[in-house]
């Protein structure tokens, strides 16, 4: 069965015709060539396919493209514009919080989902937000540090503007 779908991906309206069984992950990677989201397990266990749907982190391997119709989807490609990176991306670079990079887009999106809903999380909340993103290289600590730094700097900026 084919469906006409329409969704906003990284701020752009996308219209397509997709079969029922096409996962959001396949739609992003195969149809839109947005390869940032990776398939690591296909079962929602590794988090490498994490994207934001309506601002919330989801495993795009466990969602159909047709289910995302009418919704707003943000992938890692939507975070940077030209040379300007999202503060989370910059912080991951500055903290050397990546190695092979395969989990990184998913990790970044989980962090983005967290900071959108909670700009000043505790360390435990950061750990919770990324504990569904498996990483075999880094040992996680730097990733948590990187996200905490973004939260801290946005907090100090807020305080600065209020003062």
């Amino acid at each position: 069965m084919l469906h006409n779908i329409e969704m906003t991906v990284n701020g752009e309206l996308v219209k397509a015709k997709v079969p029922s069984h096409m996962r959001l992950l396949d739609f992003l990677r195969e149809e839109l060539d947005l390869i940032g989201a990776k398939e690591g397990c296909g079962k929602g266990e590794c988090g490498a396919c994490t994207v934001l749907v309506e601002g919330k982190a989801v495993n795009s391997c466990l969602m159909l493209a047709v289910e995302a119709s009418g919704k707003e989807v943000l992938t890692v490609e939507g975070l940077s514009e030209g040379d300007s990176l999202d503060p989370i991306q910059q912080s991951i670079i500055d903290n050397s919080a990546l190695q092979c990079g395969y989990c990184t887009p998913g990790m970044v999106m989980s962090a983005k989902g967290l900071l959108l809903r909670n700009p000043s999380p505790t360390r435990d909340e950061v750990v919770e937000a990324i504990s569904g993103n498996l990483c075999r290289c880094t040992g996680y600590a730097r990733v948590v540090d990187a996200i905490m730094q973004v939260a801290a700097s946005s907090k100090s900026q807020d305080e600065g503007s209020e003062g």
Binding site: E77, I92, S96, L98, G101, Y102, P105
Partner: peptide, 15 residues
């Protein structure tokens, strides 16, 4: 800073 970092953090790195 790692020379592969920007590619990887933006999802641009191709595997």
């Amino acid at each position: 800073i790692r020379n592969d970092a920007v590619e990887k953090v933006t999802g641009a790195a191709r595997y």
